[in-house]
Design a protein around this nucleic acid. Structure first.
Length: 197
DNA sequence: CGAACGATGTTCT
DNA sequence: GAACATCGTTCGG
């Protein structure tokens, strides 16, 4: 089966893109070794002046520049002095936005993921944005990389019906949280989420 | 269980 | 100088 080419509906508002990223296998090949996991939890982040919780809210800066660029790329940032988080850029033309990938079910390269994560508990490989980034080996060096049909791509492996999706509040926001429910979970994968919806 | 907290460095005010 | 789209460990009930 050939990968579905991107943009996999990333040229839409991040809220809509988020819904379409559920059920997609995120695939990354580095040094000839492949890791993959099916996305089950994401959060949408809006554009300049739109979403106070978004890195793009104030203005374009060196860190968030990729959010203002083409959709269907990785936006990777460093946080809390030790963690990385991975987004897929998603927005309509002329706007900014991204979808944070918060959890996924590992499907390939589990041995390498366990090594990178220093754990044998498979539930702890990709159940959280920084865990997922570490399992995939993503760092700021990968910021801006294009998701295509090559060593880094998305492939839809499951259709997630609306009835199996729960929308809830985004995680870890403090002052910037205005209560919008832009977190999107595949509830049939409850065991693999970063936390309950 | 759940709550509290320390780690650790970049970004923004 | 404060905040931070987090995680792992420790402590209390």
């Amino acid at each position: 089966m050939t990968p579905v080419p991107l943009p996999l509906r990333c040229d839409v508002h991040p809220l809509e893109a988020a819904r379409h990223l559920l059920g997609c296998d995120l695939v990354h090949v580095r040094d000839g070794r492949r890791v993959a996991a099916v996305i089950v939890e994401v959060e949408a982040y809006g554009g300049e002046g739109e979403d106070p919780a978004s890195h793009a809210y104030r203005r374009r800066t060196a860190r968030n520049a990729v959010m203002f660029g083409a959709p269907g790329r990785l936006y990777v940032y460093f946080t809390y002095g030790m963690h990385h988080c991975v987004n897929v850029t998603a927005h309509r033309t002329g706007e900014a936005g991204a979808v944070l990938v918060r959890a996924a079910v590992p499907t390939d390269g589990l041995a390498l993921m366990r090594r990178r994560r220093r754990t044998a508990d498979d539930r702890l490989l990709c159940s959280g944005p920084a865990r997922l980034a570490e399992a995939f080996g993503f760092t700021v060096r990968d910021d801006g990389r294009r998701l295509d049909a090559g060593r880094l791509h998305l492939q839809r492996v499951r259709h997630v019906p609306d009835a199996e999706i729960t929308w809830s509040g985004r995680v870890g926001l403090s002052g910037a949280d205005d209560g919008r429910r832009w977190r999107c979970c595949d509830v049939t994968a409850a065991r693999w989420l970063s936390r309950p919806p």
